[in-house]
Design a protein around this nucleic acid. Structure first.
Length: 574
RNA sequence: GAUCCAGUAGCUCAGUAGGUAGAGCACAUCCCUUUUAAGGAUGGGGUCCUGGGUUCGAAUCCCAGCUGGAUCACCA
């Protein structure tokens, strides 16, 4: 047993586990446990007059235990909440045998254990709706103590606040922190709300490849993986746009997908390497129609979640009431910088950037320069939902040229709180134009732009067969979830955000120590001193110091062992 | 990638011009017939993130590193 690395409480729980087994109780039974109520139902629907819930059966985690002699109170937590349990010794006494209460309940059940209880609902003298437990069964033993978080009148005490703890061990966060589940429940409601709208219009939810031979549909660095049988590299998708448009070619007139995308880029408060995007493509529509539809969708989501159009985000209130403000990109730049860039070439744009102290580099083409100006000088000011329309053609290789101005595209983004939330086009369906745009991307790529798009010849071939005119829109689900749940960090709306791997050092088994000539009695001591692996011992530079430390430990803890000789210790290290 | 902040008991956190490491909850033992973030008493529990350095002495000061957070940069 590697007990030296377990805490006292963990050891005690393992002992309780063994004791239960000795008493013939399986701490991990296989049989189902039927439930006929949950905590929320009881709190909402029980009344003493009705005398309902007199034969309830429910299950959950034991979250507190207060023992008062022959009676005890405890709390049971299920998915919906918590309820107080009342246990009385006499209810569990058979003849003279009080062990069910005194041993099993009082000593061997711990906070965190899953139990099932049967009994009747009543209200205590203190006015607390409770279950008088007549029967209980252990459903799953917990051998690792949960942090104790308490709550009184909405004030939470000792919540687990350490971000690393919460993200790495989300299961603990969800278990102990009140309200931790709410964010994720809202996230799912939000997705359901969107899905409802799309389905009500007859659009088809589809699935397209995540492993793609050519990562298309966006400008981003992909993750690369390898398929052994085909012996080719594949990319994790950065977008699903090109596949959904292929489906329009194939005759579907409205398709959408909630898609996990992957981008091999930096991580911060608003970026996780994998994230969720909803993309939708509707035939015979244009971006003006899509703007209205986007408004409808977002307003519906906000209403479904909050019952009103405005939401609190940090210290701001954001109102999603239709219609949203609309500006063209060049108009926005003119408004926020006073500069009209509509007629400018690359060189002039570079000078504007210089004047506005915006960093540029040689690889940036016209599109990226304009985007830099917009991102730096306009985006941060756009807190309330604002559509930015008509992007320069250079930065939108999959988007149809503007019906009145060939230098622009029929594209809009929805900016909320200074961040892009949606991106939509009147889709480019001219195969000749599309190929030229891809070739322009190739030139950018050769110039050093590592995010320029690859040429997808199959996609061009699909367009050659003919694609109906269409409009498409993508929306960042994580960012929308952040807005809808008032979270400042993407990690708080993802169950399991990406983290650096946890370094887990496992101790070497005793045999490895004995093989190195270390005598039994010193192994545990070495491990307690932190030398949990042989490699650590071998890496000691001064064997004399280790020898002294060992002797010191022996003396300090009054172990009375015969100290090893300096030479012995030297041999361990060699 | 840069800068700043943090890392002390299972959890939340104190702490000291460098001199034996603290509280609450949790845990253990005992007492207690219904308590309400918690009934009472007693007690156990710590490589003070890691490794170096300064020092008679480092959890505390210095340097380096690890992990996390924040800000910025990068980023449709």
């Amino acid at each position: 047993m590697a007990n030296f690395e377990l805490s006292e409480q963990e050891i005690l729980r393992r002992e309780a586990l063994e004791e239960l087994r000795r008493m013939g109780i399986n701490p991990y039974p296989a049989e189902r446990f039927d439930v006929n109520a949950n905590t929320a139902q009881i709190h909402n629907e029980y009344s003493a007059e009705k005398n309902n819930f007199q034969e309830v059966s429910l299950a959950g985690r034991l979250m507190s235990k207060r023992i008062m002699g022959s009676a005890s109170f405890a709390e049971l937590q299920d998915e919906k909440g918590r309820i107080q349990l009342y246990f009385k010794r006499d209810d569990f006494t058979v003849g003279e045998d009080t062990s069910r209460y005194n041993i099993i309940f009082k000593k061997l059940l711990d906070i965190g254990d899953f139990i099932g209880v049967k009994g009747f609902v009543f209200i205590t003298q203190m006015g607390e709706t409770s279950i008088h437990v007549k029967d209980f069964v252990l459903l799953g033993k917990s051998v690792k103590p949960l942090p104790i978080v308490k709550e009184k009148d909405g004030t939470v005490y000792d919540a687990v606040t350490d971000a690393e703890f919460r993200y790495r061990q989300r299961y603990v966060d969800l278990t102990v922190n009140p309200g931790a589940k709410d964010i994720f429940i809202k996230r799912t409601k939000m997705i359901n709300s969107m899905r409802e709208l799309f389905n009500s219009k007859g659009y088809l939810e589809v699935e397209t490849p995540i492993l793609q031979p050519i990562p298309g549909g966006a400008a981003a660095r992909p993750f690369i993986t390898h398929h052994n049988t085909l012996d080719i590299n594949l990319y994790l998708r950065i977008a699903n746009e090109l596949y959904l448009k292929r489906l329009l070619v194939g005759g579907f007139e409205g398709v959408y997908e909630f898609a996990k995308d992957f981008r091999n880029e930096g991580m911060d408060r608003t970026h996780n390497p994998e994230f969720t995007v909803m993309e939708i493509y509707i035939a015979y529509k244009d971006y003006l129609w899509m703007m209205d539809f986007t408004e409808e969708m977002i307003e519906k989501v906000v209403l479904d979640l909050h019952g009103k159009t405005s939401v609190q985000f940090s210290e701001k209130v954001i109102d999603f009431k239709r219609p949203f403000k609309r500006m063209t990109m060049l108009g926005a730049i003119k408004e926020f910088t006073g500069i009209d860039i509509s007629e400018m070439d690359e060189q002039q744009l570079r000078e504007v950037c210089k004047k506005l102290t915006i960093e540029t580099d040689e690889t940036m083409g016209k599109g990226k320069l304009i985007d830099a100006i917009f991102g730096d000088k306009c985006e941060p000011h756009l807190v309330q939902p604002t559509f930015i329309m008509d992007y320069p053609v250079e930065m939108s290789p999959l988007c149809k040229k503007h019906r009145h101005n060939p230098l622009l595209t029929e594209r809009f983004e929805l900016i909320v709180n200074g961040k892009e939330l949606c991106n939509a086009y009147t889709e480019l369906n001219d195969p000749i134009d599309q190929l030229e745009r891809f070739q322009e991307q190739l030139r950018l790529s050769e110039k050093g732009d590592d995010e320029a798009m690859f040429i997808d010849y199959d996609f061009v071939r699909a367009l050659e067969y003919g694609m109906p005119p269409a409009s498409g829109m993508g929306i960042g689900i994580d960012r929308l979830a952040m807005l809808m749940t008032n979270q400042q960090s993407i990690q708080d709306v993802l169950f399991f955000p990406q983290m650096k791997p946890e370094k887990k050092e496992t101790a070497d088994p005793k045999e490895k120590y004995t093989e190195a000539g270390i005598s039994e009695e010193w192994i545990e001591i070495l491990q307690k001193m932190g030398y949990t692996t042989l490699r650590k011992i071998k890496s000691v530079e001064k064997h004399g110091k280790l020898h002294q430390d060992l002797c010191g430990y022996n003396k300090k803890n009054k172990l009375g062992l015969n100290n090893p000789s300096v030479d012995d210790v030297k041999k361990w290290i060699e």
